[in-house]
Amino acid sequence: MSAPGVYLESPAPHISSGDSVAKRFWLKSAALLPVLVVVLGTSGAGFLKVLTVSVLGVAGFEWLNAGFFRKKSSLQNGDAILTGVTLAVLLPSHCPALLVLVATFVAALVIKECFGGLGGRLFQPAVFARVFLDLTFAGGIKSPELFQYAGEPIFLSAILLSAFLLAIQKKIYFETPLYFVGAMILGAWVTGGQDLLRVAGIAVFAGYFLITDTVTLPLTRRGTNWFAILAACLGVCLGMKYSTVTAICYAILMMNAAVPWIDHWVRPRRYASNTGEMPGSFGARSGLGNKR
């Protein structure tokens, strides 16, 4: 075959690393499977109802929003499903379907779409929706089963397995959740009066699945680690007054609000800003090593 055709003209680069937004969100949702199975096994139909309403609610509101504003639906990128699943895990299995629907409305439309959709949100939508329900229906929202029994072997094993599945995807900094978990356990040990195993289980889940929503994190590795440490410290302080789930959710939202400041103060140190300094990571995560 000769070369007669008309080809695509596009800006460089013409190849990509193969990573995609959809892959990230779907894989993160898949990593949550062990936790879902255990909660489903212990809570039964109640959790199944919450999970179904939550996932369908978030997806439905996003779909309605896309239809109303004549935008291309973004359901296939998996963000709606991930938000729905995370929200379901943060709610108790006896939560009324209507409340779950309200939470999905807040997560999908108020927090995500009103701020410009994916990439525009300021707060972790599932966490914000949980806090919204907490504030609005204070009597009706209790700690979710996962958080209540996080210290029990089966729950702890499921959380650790889910965390491991997420960690091996290498889509998050490996040390960020560890900072969070370490600071949480240390804080709980210092303040005393808590079941450390339970705190550890909750911290692992929150460290891997709640604070690692990239859209609401700082833009540098150092900044992200500071985010995790400060969120854990806030969580410990608030935990002395509120339940652990509420404290962690508040801490994450407060740190989400502080992200612009972190981004302002913690910036990458530019190449050759110090004489003689060589680039340490030099494209290390670009995947372009050994070019051939």
Binding site: K171, R269, R270, Y271, P279, S286
Partner: peptide, 19 residues
């Protein structure tokens, strides 16, 4: 193209440490 999800991969990979 999709919106930026602030995953930091560009920041981590930049050889001259920009954002």
């Amino acid at each position: 193209p999709e919106p930026c999800i602030r995953c930091n991969r560009c920041v981590d990979s930049c050889p001259v440490f920009l954002s």
